[in-house]
């Protein structure tokens, strides 16, 4: 047996792969569900917080900054564990799936709030003045003039953050979420072979490469003609 054959036997074992493919696929479905939920709620909540912050109500802003700084500093794993093992003492018993979703959504909310806020504040003051001088209200100016420009600035850092945090769905393993990595590692220990892990890696590539490509597409769409 050549070295290459041994390598293939170990990492790309057809029999093992065939046997655990259904498990990995069900893991893919769970990861997609979790990722979509995290992205939609996390970015949505982050945008909502950034908009609230733009109102400039001081006590509210302190609260927002406090929450955001907290979730930006804590490792997502700690948040998952706190929610999963901590909330039952408050009478709530979220599943591993819900705990992972909430934790990652909070973390993404915190980062995306900061990214949106940075985008909003970097839009030139003159844009506000021009819009307000034509009679647009604060809200109309924010929605029609400032946010479209803020989005354009926010998209590259937001994509990076979103991908990094959605890959954190793998942390769900510790609270028994059967997503890709969870399925792959249990298949690996059952079969004494790392091939399922390679399948898991392939699944992540298949999932996230389109996201990266889509992000590039959005970036070019939001860049205005010069």
């Amino acid at each position: 047996m050549s070295t290459w054959d041994r390598f293939a036997e170990t990492f790309f074992n057809a029999k093992v792969m065939h046997r655990y493919l259904p498990d990995i696929l069900s893991g893919v479905v769970v990861t997609i569900e979790l990722a979509l939920l995290v992205v939609v709620t996390g970015i949505g909540a982050g945008l909502a917080l950034a908009l609230l912050r733009s109102l400039g109500i001081r006590p509210l802003n302190w609260l927002i900054i406090g929450v955001v700084d907290l979730f930006r500093s804590l490792p997502p794993l700690v948040v998952i564990v706190l929610i999963y093992f901590g909330l039952p003492s408050a009478g709530l018993a979220p599943s591993g799936f819900v705990s992972t979703w909430l934790s990652l959504a909070f973390v993404l909310m915190a980062f995306s709030e900061e990214i949106f806020w940075a985008g909003i504040t970097s839009v030139d003051r003159g844009q506000w003045e021009a819009a307000r001088s034509t009679g647009l209200s604060f809200g109309q100016t924010l929605m029609n003039v400032v946010l479209p420009q803020a989005f354009r600035l926010a998209i590259p850092p937001l994509t990076n953050r979103t991908i990094a945090i959605t890959k954190g769905t793998a942390l769900g393993t510790v609270v028994a979420v059967t997503e890709i990595l969870g399925q792959a590692s249990s298949a690996m220990s059952n079969s004494y072979n790392p091939s399922p892990l390679m399948m898991g890696a392939a699944a992540y590539l298949v999932l996230f490469l389109p996201v990266v490509v889509a992000a590039r597409f959005i970036e070019t769409r939001f860049a205005w003609k010069r």
Partner: peptide
């Protein structure tokens, strides 16, 4: 009308 035009670039 402003010195820096302040047109909406988008």
């Amino acid at each position: 009308v402003f010195q820096s035009f302040n047109l909406y670039p988008h």
